[in-house]
Design a protein around this nucleic acid. Structure first.
Lengths: 218, 218
DNA sequence: TCCGTCATGTAACCTGTTACATGATTCG
DNA sequence: CGAATCATGTAACAGGTTACATGACGGA
């Protein structure tokens, strides 16, 4: 149900082909949404049938012809309607976190390897994101324009940037934490809580402070 | 493909019925995974057919009978195999962020309302999460046990806690940011970048510092 | 010559959600 | 007396991924 609004939202600002929309999904929009061409094309047809968008063919030289879509007044109304309906936070599905959850079943070295590898993947994505953001900012400064869309897009970009940085920080902290708990993998079976209480407290220190800050404000 | 491993992972530590698994998905596991009963039951049947798990009926008094599942050796091997395969960060799908992205189409007041409402939803979830974590910790301290599973589950819980707190903080910062940019909704159309450069820099100050820290370490 | 980009689509498959169906017990 | 909890499932539908199909152009 959200893909249609991603398309309508995008077309509320620029006219575009399915291929163009896909590129945007892989670029700036990638922080909030993505989709495959095989899903975008049928959705565009559906939206046109419902008269929320219109299309026209554009012939090109040296390139295949393209089908350019524009949003209709009905489409704009539908988009605004949706923008004003509240959203609930999405239920989490994080495969990596799930693997971490069950990582008592694999060796100590394997766990550390896993955390380090994933951290690298996140760093790669952070780099890509930084590239996207820098390009955007450069273009804004060069054209010296500012409008509400740029503001809101920037807010989304900031969120994307932060969440990558913070996930990486969690990886670092957790690598440290696991390293302090090696004994639990060596001698299989249980130890007492007290033996590791200090390590535990250290790991949760920052999180507790964050929660406390949150409570002080309220 | 991940649901099966969520089930295997859970059964690698405790035997349980489909109903029990669902409860865990709604509780501690909710930070990394969730599922509906209508998906869990067929998956359990499939896993049993593949001989990764086994079942037995348990009659209960005053309650319906239940079907208790236990993991097999083949199941354990399959789980470990999966735990050792690397995961890529999931592609983002955040409906709320998408709505924020297109919020130049709705009024200034509507945007602020939206951000505040969503912040409240996130706060609700944070409260629920804090409840889960506190209960867990109480039980750990009381039983005075510590093992690798507890360590890894704690790492996941920490991640869940942090990401909620940080999302809430982003809401706060963004509410402030948008408030400083009201003029962009009042006089429709474009302004120059320079007029709002200071506001922009302020909003991104912290994020830039985070990125810088990240780079200093590397 | 082969790969990447531009450009549009269909088909099969897998995953996930909502609705339906049943039925006992316990708590407010 | 009705709602929530315990307990297990099926069916229909919606959403998303992978594979397949076609074809021109430009650069390595």
């Amino acid at each position: 149900m959200s893909l249609r609004y991603a398309i309508l939202g995008f077309l509320s600002d620029w006219e575009a082909s399915g291929y163009d929309i896909k590129k945007e999904f892989d670029d700036v929009m990638s922080i909030s949404w993505h989709s495959h061409l095989s899903q975008i094309y049928p959705e565009l047809s559906k939206l046109e049938k419902e008269e929320l968008i219109q299309s026209r063919f554009v012939e090109q030289e040296g390139k295949p012809d393209k089908k350019i879509y524009t949003i209709t007044e009905t489409g704009k109304r539908e988009l605004i309607q949706w923008l004003m309906t509240p959203t609930e936070p999405p239920k989490i599905k994080d495969v990596f976190l799930m693997q971490v959850f069950f990582s008592d079943r694999i060796s100590f070295d394997e766990v550390l390897l896993k955390l380090n590898l994933y951290k690298k993947e996140r760093q790669k994505r952070l780099e890509k994101m930084k590239g996207i953001i820098q390009e955007r900012f450069k273009s804004i400064k060069e054209r010296n324009v500012m409008n509400a869309r740029i503001i809101m897009a920037s807010a989304v970009l900031k969120r994307g940037l932060e969440s990558e940085v913070q996930y990486i920080k969690w990886c670092d902290d957790t690598i440290q934490f696991v390293q302090s708990c090696q004994s639990l993998w060596d001698k299989k079976g249980n130890q007492s809580y007290e033996e590791l209480a200090a390590v535990f407290d250290e790991y949760f220190k920052e999180a507790s402070a964050l929660v406390q800050n949150e409570e002080d404000k309220a």
